[in-house]
Write a protein that binds this DNA or RNA. Structure first.
Length: 704
RNA sequence: GCGCGGUUAGCUCAGUUGGUAGAGCAUCCCCUUGACGUGGGGAGGGUCGUAGGUUCAAGUCCUACACCGCGCACCA
């Protein structure tokens, strides 16, 4: 007995070298065709589908993507080995606003030109070219992670099939009356010069001044505001219906001239007013505040617009053409001189800013395209319902399950506060709205109308409109394809919690409306990858981690393990390079285990108690993966293989030939169990296992 | 204000139905000329945020509070 080096393949005599192995292995997988479930061996009937949340073509992959890819790849490889038709659909997202903004910035910097200097066609050409480049970069990075995506089904939100899907979806919802064009208050981004949705807003706390003033000497109620300049657009003062102080004034109307602007103020009672804030009286500016717009709806007030798209005043008189911030000071000074300013206080205020550009949002009334979430339509199951109800019920009924309860409640909370979705954007890159105008006529269809004189809508769609169709547009919809029938609803969707509302809810909305079924059965929400100190990775902190650097240092397997073992799914992961290093050592440990076991004869019978012990562990690990305790599964395997198998069993076996078959059994099945987590090193060892028949990635899972 | 997480070893985090507190890293000690020094063995270290409650038994269930993080709404 003892070592029989002549039996061990040459490669095992050196330490495991991921750099030399991973590229080769990935190529082998791709060439096998097994990423495509149609090519998988055996008689497979049960589908298992994941759609990759498409990364934006704005740049390169970050470590958050690497984490997301790993989670999904583990599930896909697991189910593939369990004999399912495992399909993981890759794709990328044009990310209209983000990508255009990025390219505009580059052009401004390099050539000193704006998008208007270039024109629509030229700009779109630039953006498309940029998108192509970063698409290529991103896809090569995803491959490096070992992601077993079916590249034959690759989709891009702006490719021809997805265009058809987007236009068809628009047309059908337009015909159902769920998409309408309406003049309503929008979130206007003065820097980006476009509307944005409620979900693209971030609130920032800033210092502000709270002014208390009267419209005129004879006006009975003082009013507090931080936005003095908008007061020339006021048409009412609202008080709480139960507020005894002001009851006597409700219904009265007053005229005043504020900074040369004549205003007509009606005093009204509305429950939206907080009697405890300021003076308990709210100056209502219908055209420049979401709340005030709604109050104006209820009281049928006029809504003069006094600020334009570049955040300048449009009224006559001294304020004309001033920026809002300058106008504010001008009004304060004027009130002071007139003796109408009663008080100025410093307060903290949450300001709405654009997530993308950082600009302060200016609420404005604009003619835009909307999806009505409260309007009745007939669902394909025959019931009359609304999009809002459909989004709620899909989760409430557990047609869509969210294993993490907390996110489920947050989802409901969000749905209940949902307003109509503004889907038009004033940019050039993206899906142009399939609507044409001629005089008063409006035409909506997948293609342009016949005849002369039609002009297509200039706006493009919110990028989330096309993303919302993603689970089924990638499978060929609106055609009735075999893929759609087989793989939809998909099995698991795994987005970061950041986009639970933005994306998940909207996929449910679209899938329920267009297909009459949910887009997926399970939503597995994952956390963010943060720096070791808990802060977000960001350019300004310069604490970014490039997954490619980590892969080059430690290998993709080690990176995968290091990310997975960081935290339970759903919690934030703190990235720790030391941990990744530890798993590089583990890969090498496994390598040496193989070296030892392969040097032994497979003598003796498999010892029942060892088999029993292994199989129990395997069943345990299986259950953990099934119930998404990915972290636990990985840890258990790690411990079994290192502490039990290597440290104890192999040590005991030395000089005892009767252990040979047992050791081989454990190695063979450990490789299978570990494959979803560390696909490269396990596949590389597998290639030299005497019992192998095919690639490890399609071997049967060792336990039920 | 409403809601959701979190609070466990020096650090990062596990702890699945309540049953004698765990891992990795870090620290310290010891061992080792054949699978692997990218090794092996061992040790120290925790009143499981606070205060109550339920229970034979609570890190785990309940209530309140504190602190940290996040989301939503308001912010006139």
């Amino acid at each position: 007995m003892g070592l029989m080096p002549e039996k061990v393949p040459e490669k095992f005599l050196k330490p495991y070298n991921p750099q030399a192995v991973e590229g080769k292995i990935y190529k082998k997988w791709e060439e096998s065709g097994y990423f495509n479930p149609d090519n998988l061996p055996g008689n497979r009937t049960q589908p298992f589908t994941i759609t990759l949340p498409p990364p934006n073509v704005t740049g390169t992959l970050h470590v958050g993507h690497a984490y997301e890819d790993t989670l999904q790849d583990i599930l896909i490889r697991f189910e593939r080995m369990r004999g399912k038709k495992a399909l993981w659909v890759p794709g990328t997202d044009s990310a209209a606003i983000a990508t255009q903004a990025r390219v505009e910035k580059n052009i401004q910097k390099d050539e000193g030109k704006s998008r208007h200097d270039l024109g629509r066609e030229e700009l779109v050409r630039h953006v498309t070219e940029f998108a192509k480049n970063s698409e290529a970069t991103i896809l090569s990075q995803v491959r490096k992670m070992g992601a077993s995506l079916d590249w034959s089904r690759y989709a891009y939100t702006l490719d021809e099939k997805r265009n058809t899907a987007v236009f068809t979806a628009f047309k059908r919802m337009y015909d159902a009356g769920l998409i309408y064009r309406g003049n309503r208050i929008v979130n206007w981004d003065p820097k980006g010069q476009t509307t944005i949705s409620d979900d693209e807003i971030v609130h920032e706390e800033r210092d502000a001044k709270l002014y208390t003033f009267r419209y005129s000497k004879t006006f009975p109620i003082p009013v507090a505001t931080t936005r003095l300049e908008t007061k020339v657009g006021d048409t009412a003062v609202a008080v709480h219906p139960d507020d005894e102080r002001y009851k006597q004034y409700v219904g009265k109307e007053y005229d005043a001239v504020l900074c040369d602007v004549p205003v007509h103020i009606k005093i009204i009672a509305d429950a939206a007013v907080d009697p405890a804030f300021g003076t308990g009286a709210l100056g209502v500016t219908p055209a420049h505040s979401q709340t005030d717009w709604e109050i104006a709806d209820r009281h049928d007030l006029p809504r003069p617009q006094i600020i334009n798209e570049i955040a300048k005043m449009t009224v006559e008189g001294r304020l004309c053409g001033k920026k809002t911030t300058e106008a504010r000071e001008a009004v304060a000074e004027w009130l002071q001189n007139e003796g109408l300013l009663e008080k100025v206080e410093d307060i903290k205020q949450n300001v709405s800013t654009s997530e993308r550009t950082g600009a302060i949002i200016e609420p404005l009334p604009k003619l835009q395209w909307w999806i009505d979430v409260d309007k009745n339509f007939v669902h394909q199951n025959g019931s009359t319902t609304t999009l809002k109800k459909v989004m709620r019920q899909a989760v409430e009924s557990s047609a869509v399950t969210m294993p993490q309860e907390g996110f489920r409640n947050a989802y409901f909370h969000w749905i209940d506060n949902l307003r109509d979705w503004c889907i038009s954007r004033q940019i050039w890159f993206g899906h142009r709205i399939p609507v044409w105008y001629k005089g008063d006529e409006i035409y909506c269809d997948v293609g342009a109308p016949q005849g002369d004189g039609w002009k297509q809508e200039e706006d493009v769609l919110d990028t989330w409109f096309s993303s919302a169709l993603w689970t089924f547009s990638t499978l060929g919809w609106p055609e009735k394809t075999k893929d759609l029938e087989t793989y939809h609803p998909t099995s698991v969707m795994s987005p970061a919690y950041e986009i639970l509302y933005l994306w998940v809810s909207r996929m449910i909305l679209m899938s329920e409306f267009h297909l009459g079924q949910p887009p997926f059965k399970t939503v597995l929400i994952h956390g963010l990858v943060r720096a070791k100190d808990g802060r977000k990775f960001s350019k300004s902190l310069n604490n970014g981690v490039d997954p490619l650097d980590i892969i080059n240092k430690y290998g993709a397997d080690a990176l995968r393990m290091g990310l997975i073992v960081g935290a339970a799914v759903g919690a934030d992961v703190k990235f720790d390079e030391q941990r990744v290093k530890g798993y590089k050592l583990f890969a090498n440990k496994l390598w040496n285990i193989a070296r030892f076991v392969l040097s032994q004869e497979q003598t003796g019978d498999i010892k029942p108690e060892l088999k029993q012990e292994f199989d129990t562990m395997a069943a345990d690990v299986t259950k953990d993966i099934e119930e998404y305790r990915i972290y636990m599964a990985a840890e258990k395997l790690y411990h079994y293989i290192w502490d039990r198998f290597a440290a104890q069993l192999i040590e005991e076996s030395k000089g005892k030939p009767e252990y040979g078959a047992s050791l081989y059994y454990i190695l063979e099945n450990s490789l299978k169990l570990l494959h979803p987590f560390m696909p490269f090193v396990t596949e590389e060892i597998w290639a030299d296992m005497p019992s192998k028949k095919d690639l490890l990635m399609v071997e049967g899972w060792p336990t039920k």
